[in-house]
Amino acid sequence: MHILDNLMLMFEFWIQTNWYVAFAMSLVTNLAVYFAFGYLISTITQRITKNNWLGEYIDKRPFKNGQQTSEIKNGITACVMFSLVSLLARELFVGVIPLSITQLLIEVSVFTLFYETYSYFVHKLLHTKQFRKPHSVHHYSVRTTPWSAYSVHPIEALLIGMSAPLFMLIFPVHLSVIFAFHILGVVFTLLIHSNLKLNSSNIFCQLFNRYTRSHTAHHSIGNVNFGFINSFWDLCFKTKYIESRVV
């Protein structure tokens, strides 16, 4: 209960404080999550693939010169953009915590549907001629690492970050739900860029491999697998990858 109470106090302070203090709090949070989980996933991936016993890299091509340094610099810029956009959420939320489990489930379900649709069509948009140059920042990382996850142009970071405020304009949602989705989304995005295939047949490993292989295919091939958490829109628009084409 103390942890929940402290989180509530932090949310209340963030809502009521000056915008530049709120921005600083958001930036520290984004950077902390990005670096903590990026380092953790990178370290675990390196150890798992050391002897190819527990897992192996999907794409084994060498990294480009200075790739990781460039990725981390771009990731920091993305965190700045996410923190700026978060200030809009201070004006649009309907409360801090949902009043019931039913309300929580409704908000989670509707936002999940919204984000999957939003992310697919924004991702498709980024592959059009008009946005190809900004999106090329992300596709510079052909062989991905967790740090590749937010190695994006500021325009792309803005589009990613705007998903929550746009949703909040059309559907009442509580701040804690948006915050939780953002943190989980960051971690999930880091994971699917890990380029890791686990050598196990259990259900968890199969699910993990499906996501990492799917996104590795996107970076390898380019015009497939635009979806974030499922293949619904990829199947509808015939952009789901053919596994045999994956490197």
Rank of each mutant, 00 (worst) to 15 (best):
T29R: 03
A24K: 04
W19T: 12
Q46L: 07
T49D: 01
F111P: 06
I192A: 00
L191C: 08
K129E: 15
T45E: 07
L198V: 11
S244N: 12
V152S: 03
L184W: 03
L169I: 11
R61W: 06
L169V: 07
S214N: 12
L9I: 02
F63P: 03
L191R: 03
N202I: 07
V177I: 14
S151D: 01
T112E: 03
V224L: 06
L159S: 01
I192C: 08
L88P: 08
L27I: 09
L87S: 09
E156N: 02
T189R: 12
V85Y: 07
P146Q: 07
Y39E: 08
F63W: 06
S70P: 01
F93G: 04
P172V: 07
V152G: 02
I48C: 05
C79I: 02
E12T: 13
Y34V: 05
N230I: 08
V21G: 01
S194P: 10
T77M: 15
C236I: 15
H139L: 11
L88T: 12
F121H: 08
F13G: 00
P146C: 05
A32R: 07
S42V: 02
S176H: 04
G227H: 13
V177S: 02
W53H: 14
I183L: 10
F204I: 15
T29G: 11
P98E: 14
A157K: 01
H218G: 12
T69K: 13
L4T: 12
I72E: 03
I106Q: 10
P98G: 05
L40V: 10
I192H: 12
L54T: 00
A24V: 10
L105R: 05
S201W: 00
T145W: 04
G55T: 05
D5R: 14
M1G: 11
H127E: 00
D5E: 07
Y241M: 10
N199V: 03
I48S: 01
W233S: 14
Y39T: 02
I178N: 01
E12F: 03
M8D: 11
K238C: 10
L4A: 15
R47E: 06
V246D: 15
S194N: 06
N225C: 12
E12N: 00
T17L: 04
V247H: 10
V21K: 07
M8N: 11
M25F: 10
V224T: 11
T49A: 06
D5H: 06
E156M: 02
N52I: 09
L190E: 13
I72V: 15
H127P: 13
N65T: 14
K133V: 13
V186A: 00
L40K: 05
V80K: 02
N6H: 04
R210E: 06
A180S: 12
V246H: 11
H153F: 13
S109I: 09
Y20N: 09
F63L: 15
G66F: 10
S26Y: 03
F82D: 08
Y57K: 15
F37V: 07
P154L: 06
V33S: 01
L40C: 06
L88S: 10
Q130E: 04
D234S: 12
R213Y: 11
V177W: 04
L99P: 01
G95E: 13
G55F: 06
N30C: 09
L27H: 00
K73I: 14
F35R: 03
M8P: 05
W14V: 00
V187F: 01
L175P: 05
T144Y: 03
H135K: 13
Y39A: 09
L40N: 00
R61Q: 13
P154T: 02
